[in-house]
Amino acid sequence: NQASVVANQLIPINTALTLVMMRSEVVTPVGIPADDIPRLVSMQVNRAVPLGTTLMPDMVKGYP
């Protein structure tokens, strides 16, 4: 099973992602692959992302 990117904390709308905000976890449904975490750094979320939420491609501005 492939690990996905999961919010490690509440991420407010328009926040630029940092490594501490994300963790990898095997979840269903599958979200953004954990391998993409380095690419996500400094990209902004377009909505508030609660703790434990799987990051989906449509939540991150400019992804992929």
Results as ranks from 00 to 15, higher is better:
residue 1 N to T: 15
residue 1 N to K: 05
residue 1 N to R: 03
residue 1 N to W: 08
residue 2 Q to A: 15
residue 2 Q to H: 14
residue 2 Q to P: 15
residue 3 A to V: 06
residue 3 A to N: 15
residue 3 A to C: 15
residue 3 A to I: 07
residue 4 S to P: 01
residue 4 S to R: 02
residue 4 S to M: 02
residue 5 V to F: 00
residue 5 V to L: 03
residue 6 V to S: 02
residue 6 V to M: 04
residue 6 V to H: 02
residue 7 A to N: 01
residue 7 A to I: 05
residue 7 A to V: 11
residue 7 A to Q: 00
residue 7 A to W: 02
residue 7 A to D: 02
residue 7 A to H: 01
residue 7 A to K: 02
residue 8 N to Y: 04
residue 8 N to R: 13
residue 8 N to I: 06
residue 8 N to F: 04
residue 8 N to P: 02
residue 8 N to L: 06
residue 8 N to D: 12
residue 9 Q to A: 11
residue 10 L to Q: 12
residue 10 L to P: 11
residue 11 I to R: 00
residue 11 I to Y: 01
residue 11 I to F: 02
residue 12 P to C: 09
residue 12 P to L: 08
residue 13 I to M: 09
residue 13 I to F: 09
residue 14 N to L: 08
residue 14 N to K: 06
residue 14 N to T: 05
residue 14 N to P: 00
residue 14 N to I: 03
residue 14 N to M: 14
residue 15 T to E: 10
residue 15 T to Y: 06
residue 16 A to F: 13
residue 16 A to H: 13
residue 16 A to C: 09
residue 16 A to E: 07
residue 17 L to P: 03
residue 17 L to T: 00
residue 17 L to Y: 00
residue 17 L to A: 00
residue 17 L to V: 03
residue 17 L to C: 03
residue 18 T to L: 10
residue 18 T to R: 08
residue 18 T to Q: 10
residue 19 L to M: 13
residue 19 L to S: 09
residue 19 L to R: 10
residue 20 V to I: 14
residue 20 V to R: 06
residue 20 V to A: 08
residue 20 V to M: 10
residue 21 M to R: 00
residue 21 M to W: 00
residue 21 M to S: 04
residue 22 M to R: 00
residue 22 M to P: 00
residue 22 M to W: 02
residue 22 M to G: 02
residue 22 M to H: 00
residue 23 R to Y: 05
residue 23 R to F: 06
residue 23 R to T: 10
residue 24 S to G: 12
residue 24 S to T: 14
residue 24 S to K: 07
residue 24 S to D: 12
residue 25 E to F: 05
residue 26 V to R: 03
residue 26 V to M: 06
residue 26 V to T: 12
residue 26 V to P: 07
residue 26 V to N: 12
residue 26 V to G: 04
residue 27 V to R: 07
residue 27 V to T: 10
residue 27 V to N: 03
residue 28 T to L: 07
residue 28 T to Q: 14
residue 28 T to E: 15
residue 28 T to M: 10
residue 29 P to A: 04
residue 29 P to G: 03
residue 29 P to L: 06
residue 30 V to P: 14
residue 30 V to I: 11
residue 30 V to S: 13
residue 30 V to R: 04
residue 31 G to D: 01
residue 31 G to M: 02
residue 31 G to C: 03
residue 31 G to Q: 02
residue 31 G to A: 03
residue 31 G to S: 02
residue 32 I to P: 00
residue 32 I to H: 01
residue 32 I to T: 00
residue 32 I to K: 00
residue 32 I to G: 01
residue 33 P to E: 06
residue 33 P to V: 12
residue 33 P to I: 12
residue 34 A to W: 08
residue 34 A to K: 04
residue 34 A to H: 09
residue 34 A to G: 09
residue 34 A to F: 07
residue 34 A to L: 03
residue 35 D to H: 09
residue 36 D to W: 08
residue 36 D to K: 10
residue 36 D to Q: 15
residue 37 I to M: 14
residue 37 I to R: 10
residue 37 I to C: 04
residue 37 I to A: 11
residue 37 I to H: 01
residue 37 I to P: 00
residue 37 I to Y: 03
residue 37 I to T: 05
residue 37 I to F: 03
residue 38 P to W: 09
residue 38 P to T: 12
residue 39 R to F: 07
residue 39 R to P: 03
residue 39 R to Q: 09
residue 39 R to N: 11
residue 40 L to D: 01
residue 40 L to W: 02
residue 41 V to F: 05
residue 41 V to C: 12
residue 41 V to K: 06
residue 42 S to D: 13
residue 42 S to H: 11
residue 42 S to Q: 12
residue 43 M to Y: 12
residue 43 M to H: 15
residue 43 M to V: 06
residue 43 M to Q: 10
residue 43 M to P: 02
residue 43 M to A: 12
residue 43 M to N: 05
residue 44 Q to N: 10
residue 44 Q to S: 13
residue 44 Q to Y: 11
residue 44 Q to A: 15
residue 45 V to Q: 02
residue 46 N to I: 15
residue 46 N to P: 02
residue 46 N to T: 15
residue 47 R to Q: 14
residue 47 R to G: 06
residue 47 R to M: 12
residue 47 R to H: 15
residue 47 R to T: 14
residue 48 A to S: 10
residue 48 A to N: 11
residue 48 A to F: 12
residue 48 A to T: 13
residue 49 V to I: 12
residue 49 V to A: 04
residue 49 V to L: 10
residue 49 V to P: 01
residue 49 V to E: 02
residue 49 V to W: 02
residue 49 V to S: 01
residue 49 V to K: 00
residue 49 V to F: 03
residue 50 P to G: 11
residue 50 P to S: 12
residue 51 L to V: 11
residue 51 L to W: 12
residue 51 L to Y: 13
residue 51 L to H: 11
residue 51 L to D: 12
residue 51 L to K: 12
residue 52 G to V: 02
residue 52 G to D: 12
residue 52 G to P: 01
residue 52 G to M: 04
residue 52 G to W: 04
residue 53 T to V: 14
residue 53 T to P: 00
residue 54 T to M: 03
residue 54 T to F: 02
residue 54 T to E: 02
residue 54 T to L: 04
residue 54 T to R: 03
residue 55 L to R: 00
residue 55 L to Q: 01
residue 56 M to I: 10
residue 56 M to A: 08
residue 56 M to L: 12
residue 56 M to Q: 13
residue 57 P to Y: 09
residue 57 P to M: 06
residue 57 P to L: 05
residue 58 D to C: 15
residue 58 D to R: 06
residue 58 D to Y: 14
residue 58 D to F: 10
residue 58 D to G: 11
residue 59 M to K: 01
residue 60 V to A: 00
residue 60 V to K: 01
residue 60 V to R: 00
residue 60 V to H: 01
residue 60 V to E: 01
residue 60 V to S: 00
residue 61 K to N: 11
residue 61 K to F: 10
residue 61 K to M: 12
residue 62 G to W: 08
residue 62 G to K: 11
residue 62 G to D: 09
residue 62 G to Y: 07
residue 63 Y to Q: 04
residue 64 P to D: 13
residue 64 P to A: 12
residue 64 P to R: 12
residue 64 P to M: 13
